[in-house]
Amino acid sequence: MTDRVPVLKIGEILLVSIQVDLEDQMVLDLQEDLSNQIVATGAKGVVIDISALEIVDSFVGRMLATNASISRVLGAETIVVGMRPAVAMTLVELGLSLKGVRTALNLERGLKLLRRLSASRG
């Protein structure tokens, strides 16, 4: 059995902190877990922290975009936080721009952004 990425609930927010380099199966499991959790907890926001990731390939890049779309469908905003400069540059070179995914510099700013979004939604 492969490792799973934990999905933590903080109030109305789900926190996914990715600490190890992802294998393809883990990515698929995460997608499954996350959508289940959003429905189960009725979360309004998802924060995916990738500050520990040194390598992000196109598969993981696409997973981030897909997760954002899935949670939007389920009524939750997704914010990707803590992307490293080297990772951002690699993704740009790969031609991925993560359109439609909200990003923030770090976890703190990501949480702020989520609260602002939910405040403006009322």
Binding site: V80, M83, P85, A88, S97, T103, L105, N106, R109
Partner: peptide, 12 residues
Amino acid sequence: LKTVVAARMMGA
């Protein structure tokens, strides 16, 4: 454009 997109992905 590349530079701008990269900065955006970092959340700026």
